[in-house]
Amino acid sequence: MKASVLKAIELILSRDAELMDILGVTAEMSLQSSIFALLIGLPIGIWLGTCKFPGRNMLLVANRTLQGLPPVVCGLLFYMLFSGVGPFRHLKLLFTVKIMIMAQIVLITPIVISNMESYVASVAPAVRETAKGMGLGGFKTFWLLCNECMYQIISVYLLAFARSIAEVGAVSMVGGAIAWKTNVMTTAIMQYTNRGNFTLGIALGIILLTISLIVNVGISLLQRRLSR
């Protein structure tokens, strides 16, 4: 065990080519999926948090349901749509990083929506009331609301990124964990462990844990700033 850990550290320090490739694919997938999820989820979250309309509760329930969507079910869905018998087979996206990003977006956008909606709903009435009291217009009020949500937006992004980087079920199904192409940290750990190659698995585990630690420290620092 100790020898494997030491060897793993050596592998990280030597910038092993395969390890670097896995890290590159992981970064591409996690960064892109979390950014797209934020771009989609943010306006929806703000809209649901500020507006009251018939059917809003239904949308919130639907979003909560999607939040609980098992990654393997999401993977299965994308597999069926893009495989040889699926309606989108001509796009030839199966076993590419693109489809992994798409599956991740479906999985993490509901998390972005839910977190933004609950925060916005908690501050929007007071922001609106105060802005109205000063006679400020709709644009200025919206700007003030966004300013109030700034730390929350960063916090939600980090949460989405953390979820994306740690996901394994959907990405292994639609990406196929192909070496030098679609293998990400989580799928590679699984793969190398099954093969009995603990060294690379441990190296990846160390990196994954370090990233997770950094992200969580970031989130907790932001939450401390957020607390009034």
Binding site: A126, V127, E129, T130, K132, G133, L144, N147, E148
Partner: peptide, 10 residues
């Protein structure tokens, strides 16, 4: 209008 619960922006 100054509401009862005063809101301080960040």
């Amino acid at each position: 209008y100054m509401p009862q619960k005063n809101f301080a922006f960040r």
